[in-house]
Design a protein around this nucleic acid. Structure first.
Lengths: 248, 248
DNA sequence: TCTAATAGCGTATGACGTTAACTGTTTATA
DNA sequence: TATAAACAGTTAACGTCATACGCTATTAGA
């Protein structure tokens, strides 16, 4: 459900020591628990991540987990950040455009490697250390771009969000093994959709000539297409901004 | 979990008659069931949508639902499409740019009105009739734009995806009642983050001067900012395409 | 040493999605 | 008209889930 956050989530995300004095020494560590969850998700999907299973994996009773984590939701948030550690960092010697393209690509690749990534409840706000390091990398690529921090952050957010959608599409395509998602979309349309109900769509599709096999149009690789759109928009914005701040 | 689709999903989405002959006449209809689920989600959130609750709402035993729906997942897909009927359609007399902007805005507004929208498992592929009508509207706005159908579809997909992320941010902001999400982000950073671990981010933030109260920078309304980026990118692409197809 | 805080465990509860076997109803066909 | 197939909905049960509550054992400060 909609994520309600505990006030202790942030310290936990950042691995702050609980600073407790009295009482027995903890046999479990939060890192252990998150790691067990990670292994379970990795091997059997996110559905396998239940409190009981994690507890079994880590060798304790289910309820012991609640000493280290408020909720299952919280565990999943920690798991999300843990997963960000698996992102394959591209070379840092790239211009902002190539850098960000690689940065986006790496996220899609992670989703392809670990499809359960997309099943996670996506916490937009409150990045943990690993996700923040990833954001930092984006800022690294943007280091020579003259934009205020807020705009950079907004850009990173947009790219991230776009990437998530792109990843969804690619993972779904990889799972369904369809050759051409566009063709199957059109197939569904002509079979079920009443042309009078979707006139604009039908009109546009009427002018569509099926590509010869092997021939790929520009939009076929939706990834490159979407990236191009976004990066072009960003570039235009940068230029506009430079013009504005140096008016002669 | 990752959506596996029944082969009967599509007919059900499109309300095809089951064409069964023998047997008693159904007392339940699929539309009834989906409507009950819709009401439940609307009044008590998506967690309230359980097979048992829906059954109770509709006045039958839980298992009866499985005559009309393969899974709960399938019910949620139908529910998603049902929700798309609630989108507030903007005026059709708009150019592609203003039209698409309003089109995106309407989606964010829906998410704000019905926050459980974002809790739905988002089926990227296989739009139902209501969602398809919404896509048709986007194509309507793009009617005078000279792009192939596939590229238009890719654009619509990108905008849709971006909108989803934007909606997430706005809903989260509305729920948390924070004045400035950027400020709280920065707050979290200075409190917990080690500057040496996130050098680029910190460097960029160092140059950031807090806006005076009341003063709004361009990126503060991330919605307008992101939309601007995307639409600028699309415009650039259109111009490039026109140049390419009419080379003199 | 006493005491209070803590770590982990055992038990229990209610809700969940879904399987399987059934009861009754309608209609096509023999 | 009789019969059997196809269908709608029910009942009961299973396994799993997250988690509330109370308990015991352990430790550090007083």
């Amino acid at each position: 459900m909609m994520g309600v956050m505990s006030s202790d989530l942030i310290p936990r995300l950042w691995g702050k020591p609980p600073a407790g004095r009295r009482g027995p020494k903890p046999a479990l560590s939060l890192a252990q628990i998150v790691e067990a969850a990670y292994v379970l998700a990795d091997e059997h999907g996110l559905t396998a991540v239940s409190m009981a299973r994690v507890a079994e994996e880590v060798g304790c009773s289910p309820m012991a987990l609640y000493r280290h984590v408020k909720n299952k939701d919280e565990l999943l948030i920690l798991l999300s950040d843990r997963l960000c550690a698996e992102l394959a960092e591209p070379s840092r010697d790239l211009g902002w455009r190539e850098g960000l393209a690689a940065w986006m690509r790496a996220q899609v690749d992670l989703a392809l490697r670990k499809p359960w990534f997309l099943d996670l409840p996506l916490a937009v706000t409150l990045p943990g250390p690993n996700r923040l390091a990833w954001i930092d990398l984006a800022f690294h690529y943007l280091r020579d771009v003259a934009l205020p921090a807020e705009e950079k952050l907004a850009i990173v957010g947009i790219l991230s969000q776009y990437t998530l959608g792109e990843a969804r599409i690619e993972v779904e395509a990889a799972l369904s093994e369809e050759d051409d998602p566009f063709a199957s979309f059109e197939q569904m349309l002509v079979t079920y959709a009443d042309p009078e109900r979707f006139p604009s769509l039908m009109a546009s599709l009427a002018t569509w000539s099926p590509a010869a096999p092997g021939e790929r149009s520009e939009a076929d690789d939706a990834s490159a297409f979407g990236q191009g759109l976004l990066l072009a928009g960003i570039e235009a914005h940068i230029e506009r901004h430079v013009e504005r701040s140096t008016p002669e």
